[in-house]
Design a binder for these strands. Structure first.
Length: 726
RNA sequence: GCGCGGUUAGCUCAGUUGGUAGAGCAAUCCGUUUACACCGGAAAGGUCGGGGGUUCAAGUCCCUCACCGCGCACCA
């Protein structure tokens, strides 16, 4: 008998996530239980409970969130909800990143497109106003998306990398590092992006393989050595030719100097010997252009060679006659090749594959230029840290296991990166970001949080690399440099969950800043997720039109389904594929839970039943407890892909397919004792399953929880119901 | 060039300390008896990339080769 009149009406229809999810999120928010203080106040968390903290990697305010963000939100919410239910003092602090270059270039592009203006037409303040508006809109969209996915983060503590508190932290850190001699200003060849009109960091460069021509020629007829280059136009800035000291072909020329005229430009070339020159490559001789190549700059330094800049910030030539002066490098290249041909100096021309350095954000081709910039010295011993260098500070916690990276094979990649690390150029010639807190007056320099007293001080025009502020994230979010209670309780944080592609950009630099400023680590565990690809394994991109919008997923299938699809079968560090087929499967699963509930409520007349269990049913409960323990272990060990799959399997193929099916027979012809025992069992197993599924599928489980009968001691909100396994 | 992954059922991927392989999706057959067709049942499908080694025992450890992907560097 199924007395339908006792079943809540909505349970008689299929589960409807679109109606349920927004309603429940509002309910959760109203309860304020995303805030750990309130959890303590209401008695769901003990005041002396162990803290568990995750700082949400702040999404860039450049637009909307994609499936990668959805993965991040899902994994973090799983951990957070699990720990909250376990009774930990659980804080998940959300925020957004101003993403300096990315955001500015987006607004600039839009400005050019719609109004045909550049940022200089508007001026610094007016342009910044536009960027701020854009960032605000983008922020609001992002917050909506994060909420749609069910993230149980504490909005009362929300942070932005460019808000007042975070700016205070950034400026304080800059000053501190400057005073410790770790931040310095110097002229060095840097990666200049002519399109974005700014320097960029080494790891903001994307290499694109292209075909290029490698030209072999002599500077002049009376010059003894041939050289090869793909960039003949830079040769007007050459001050030396480097050869290997053991190369018999060139030994006799080492130390000699030559005065020549190269396409109308007088050159003074010294032949130097340098071990770094490969004898087998090209002619075995390297034309040294100290101003426009990082390698050449090093050679020039070693041999005390002069540096002659010949290319400006717009990638135009600054020397020569009308053939090349003020011409774009590419145009000048052709002019010089034509001249070489005319003069009969060109010996060889061959097609080679070449990696061209381009700027990640603008796509501009990088022009190495000598520029006066601010740098962080990563190899200077720091007395306050036992004379360790920043490189060593970054290396230490990974080496000694204080920070664990999951999966651990990323350790090697991490060390490899540190080994190749050069000083970090932190100044950017853009407007959106933290302006460098340095003021100049004549020969004087002032570094401070606020402008110096007195007349005539001019602030540095540049802003800081966006990763400078991101690297303070685990503690700037807690109010540092103020000695806040939050900081005392929640730092170091527990887990940093992010994509492996920003291991160096961000993770390493957080370790650097935290080690330097606080002499501790920012987090104990780094969980790296892979890139989410489409069903065919392609990266999701706008141009391919294969992106999946998390909001669409929530609307069509429910956020729960999207979350499960992102987590089941997704091992850390490994790229995963997502398709609507997979998402649909978990929508069906939510509905399965719904129907299981309907059956159980129908069979128990929607009453809470606590009857003695028959031995066979006790056995079922024991079996469940085993599985629950196993799943809890999986969660503790960050195997969310396994935990979620096991839960899915248990609910569908044990609880539904076996237990529910055999219950039908019991309810039809079993003894009253057997019936009551089974009713108790089913109710217990359903509730336990809901509890354990909650971190993975928070909405449908919370909704069912609100529809089923409970014992008096049970809490009304599933999200703060205690985890059954300890 | 240096380094890191991957190669397991048609597809996507699991396989935690070595004990002769698992899930989802798809495909096949049967079933609509009141939780659910967003369903149930059944069967099918893999010499775990090739080769070699260690071991009583290897997808799992070691060596080697091949292919795919990625990172870093070089890019005269």
């Amino acid at each position: 008998m199924q007395p339908k009149e006792n079943i809540p009406e909505k349970l008689l229809k299929p589960y409807d996530p679109t109606e349920t999810e927004p309603r429940l999120y509002t309910l959760w928010e109203k309860s304020c239980l995303f805030n750990p203080d309130i959890c303590i106040e209401k008695g769901f968390t003990l005041p002396n409970a162990k803290p568990f903290t995750i700082m949400m990697p702040p999404p860039n305010v450049t637009g909307v969130l994609h499936m990668g963000h959805a993965t991040m939100i899902t994994l973090e919410d799983i951990m957070i909800r699990y720990h909250r239910m376990k009774g930990d003092r659980t804080l998940w602090l959300p925020g957004t990143d101003h993403a300096a270059i990315a955001t500015q270039s987006k607004v600039e592009k839009e400005l050019t497109k719609t109004e045909g203006k550049s940022r200089h037409d508007l001026g610094r303040e007016a342009f910044l106003e536009k960027v701020r508006n854009f960032a605000q809109e983008s922020h609001d969209t992002i917050v909506r998306q994060v909420k749609t996915m069910g993230a149980s983060c504490d909005w009362s503590r929300e942070a932005f990398t460019l808000d007042e508190t975070r700016t205070g932290a950034v400026l304080t850190m800059f000053k501190k590092m400057y005073e410790d001699g770790l931040i310095y200003r110097g002229t060095r060849v840097v990666n200049w992006d002519p399109k974005g009109q700014t320097t960029i960091a080494d790891d903001e460069i994307v290499y694109e393989e292209r075909m290029a021509k490698l030209y072999t020629f002599k500077y002049a007829h009376d010059f003894p050595i041939s050289i090869s280059t793909t960039r003949p136009e830079t040769k007007v800035g050459d001050t030396a030719v480097a050869v290997h000291p053991d190369d018999p072909r060139y030994k006799e020329y080492i130390g000699k100097t030559y005065d020549i005229e190269f396409c109308g430009v007088p050159l003074h070339i010294t032949i130097v010997a340098d071990e770094s020159v490969e004898q087998e490559f090209g002619t075995g001789a390297l034309g040294v252009t100290p101003a426009h190549s990082m390698i050449d700059e090093q050679i020039a330094k070693k041999h005390n060679l002069p540096t002659i800049p010949v290319i400006n910030e717009y990638a135009k030539m600054t020397v020569g006659d009308e053939r090349i002066l003020n011409k774009k490098t590419t145009v000048a290249r052709e002019a010089i090749v034509a001249w070489l041909r005319e003069e009969g100096l060109l010996e060889k021309e061959e097609e080679v594959k070449q990696n061209v350095a381009t700027a990640e954000r603008t796509g501009g081709i990088i022009e190495p230029l000598p520029k006066l910039q601010w740098f962080i010295n990563v190899t200077k011993p720091i007395p306050a840290r036992g004379n360790k260098t920043l490189k060593e500070i970054m290396r230490g916690p990974i080496e000694n296991g204080a920070i664990k990276i999951i999966p651990d094979y990323f350790n090697k990649t991490y060390f490899h990166w540190i080994d190749n690390l050069r000083d970090w150029c932190i100044s950017r010639q853009i407007w959106y970001g933290h302006r460098i807190p340095v003021w100049y007056k004549d020969q004087e320099i002032y570094v401070g949080i606020t402008a110096p007293e007195g007349e005539g001080w001019v602030q540095d025009e540049d802003t800081l690399d966006t990763w400078f502020s991101s690297s303070l994230w685990t503690f700037s979010t807690l109010g540092w440099p103020e000695k806040t209670e939050d900081f005392a309780i929640y730092h170091p944080t527990d887990v940093l969950e992010t994509g492996y592609e920003i291991l160096f950009f961000w993770v390493a630099r957080m370790i650097l800043m935290t080690g330097y400023a606080l002499d501790t680590i920012p987090f104990h565990t780094v969980y790296l997720h892979g890139t989410v690809r489409d069903g065919q394994g392609r990266k999701m991109s706008k141009s391919l039109g294969n992106g999946i919008d998390p909001l669409d997923v929530a609307r069509e299938y429910g956020a729960d389904a999207g979350r499960m699809a992102l987590v089941v079968g997704t091992a850390p560090g490994t790229d995963s594929k997502i398709s609507y087929d997979k998402i649909k499967a978990y929508k069906h699963f939510a509905n399965k839970l719904w129907n299981i509930t309907r059956f159980i409520l129908g069979s128990t007349n929607n009453e809470h039943i606590e009857a003695p269990l028959l031995p066979s049913d006790i056995e079922q409960l024991t079996k469940y407890n085993e599985i629950a323990k196993d799943i809890t272990k999986d969660i503790e060990d960050y195997r969310f892909y396994m935990a979620s799959e096991k839960l899915y399997h248990y609910v569908w193929h044990e609880l539904a397919d076996i237990l529910l099916e055999e219950s039908k027979e019991i309810f039809l012809s079993g003894t009253p004792e057997a019936q009551n025992s089974r009713k108790t069992l089913l109710q217990t197993l359903l509730k336990q399953s809901l509890v354990m599924l909650h971190p993975f599928m928070p909405f449908v489980t919370e909704e069912i929880w609100s529809l089923i009968p409970h014992a008096e001691k049970e809490t009304t909100l599933l999200m703060v119901t205690p985890w059954p396994v300890h």
